[in-house]
């Protein structure tokens, strides 16, 4: 299975020097509205401001008062941690084409991002989601903070099986229903759903002040649309709907255009809503994806 690569030393060595940059505050009052839970006042100097009555005199800058005779108060970056949830799509569509092993590819990417996020000892968990008969399946690991705990994901990966429908909105609703402090949500999926579904899902997360990152996964053969010419009756693996198609070079090109249009629409939505978006088309390009697409998700060296 491709997911085993996530635990190979060579792969992890490539990720060792990377860290995930989280957007800090977008609050009207800088330094007050932060992402994540505040852990105290902190020690890292952030800014100076005019003294106002009632301010803690301990933060008064006595040197400035002595030299300039001006009352300045020092403000500090507060100590905080960000909960990062990597949500991997485990619907039936992730199992096709079987040769692509999209689920393994997605788990590898998710684990890689989790490994990077652990560089700052942020609590990270990996969850898989799908839908079964109108109910959402959401299974996740506990939060792990240190890279020494990274191996704990391995046992979880072994239990993951594809099945059910892609229910993005239901999965995000389940996440929000846990009422965790807003953190970072990384969604790894093939996004083979209608625009309404992924727009609802991503919009809900943004509305709950989550920082959202989307990783669009497709298989090598799936993205290349490499079907032999002929007439087929294709069956949607999630819905069971059948459709007669006639396939040839022209139809293959049209299919590739539809894939590109679908991906562009998703990318455009993400761009408009401030969601970090990266494409991972083909497991064979894993190294290239780490080098070129991960930076789009805020991964920096």
């Amino acid at each position: 299975m491709l997911a085993a690569r996530a635990f190979e030393p060579d792969f992890l060595r490539r990720l060792d020097g990377l860290m995930m940059q989280a957007r800090r505050t977008r609050a009207p009052r800088a330094g007050r509205r932060i992402i994540g839970r505040a852990q105290g006042s902190g020690i890292e100097l952030e800014d100076f401001r005019e003294y106002a009555p009632g301010d803690d005199l301990r933060f008064l800058d006595w040197n400035a008062l002595a030299r300039l005779d001006d009352l300045k108060v020092r403000t500090f970056r507060p100590e905080r941690q960000i909960e990062i949830t990597v949500m991997v799509d485990a619907s039936a569509s992730m199992a096709l084409p079987a040769a692509d092993d999209k689920l393994g590819f997605a788990l590898t990417l998710g684990a890689g991002l989790a490994y990077i996020a652990m560089s700052e000892n942020d609590p990270v968990r990996i969850a898989v989601f799908s839908g079964h008969g109108g109910k959402a399946r959401f299974e996740s690991t506990p939060f792990f903070r240190r890279r020494e705990s990274y191996g704990e994901f391995h046992a979880f990966f072994d239990t993951v099986r594809c099945g059910g429908e892609t229910r993005l909105a239901a999965a995000t609703a389940h996440l929000l229903g846990q009422r965790r402090p807003p953190g970072v949500a990384i969604i790894v999926s093939d996004f083979l759903v209608g625009p309404n579904d992924y727009e609802t899902a991503l919009g809900d997360l943004l509305a709950a002040h989550y920082e959202v990152k989307a990783v669009h996964v497709m298989g090598d053969r799936e993205s290349a649309v490499d079907y032999p010419p002929g007439s087929y009756r294709v069956r949607d693996c999630e819905t069971g709907v059948m459709r007669d198609v006639s396939f040839g070079p022209r139809e293959a090109e049209a299919c590739r255009r539809r894939i590109a249009a679908h991906a562009d629409a998703l990318a455009d939505f993400c761009k408009r809503r401030g969601v970090m978006y990266a494409r991972a088309f083909g497991a064979s390009r894993l190294d290239d994806i780490v080098a070129r697409e991960f930076p789009r998700l805020g991964v920096i060296a």
């Binding site: 083979l192 007439s231 087929y232 294709v234 949607d236 459709r243 198609v245």
Partner: peptide, 22 residues
Amino acid sequence: RSRPTIEVSSLILFEEAPAPVA
């Protein structure tokens, strides 16, 4: 064999064949 059934990840990517072709 003239109409093999294959399972795909999603029908979003496929267009239905026109009638004459079918």
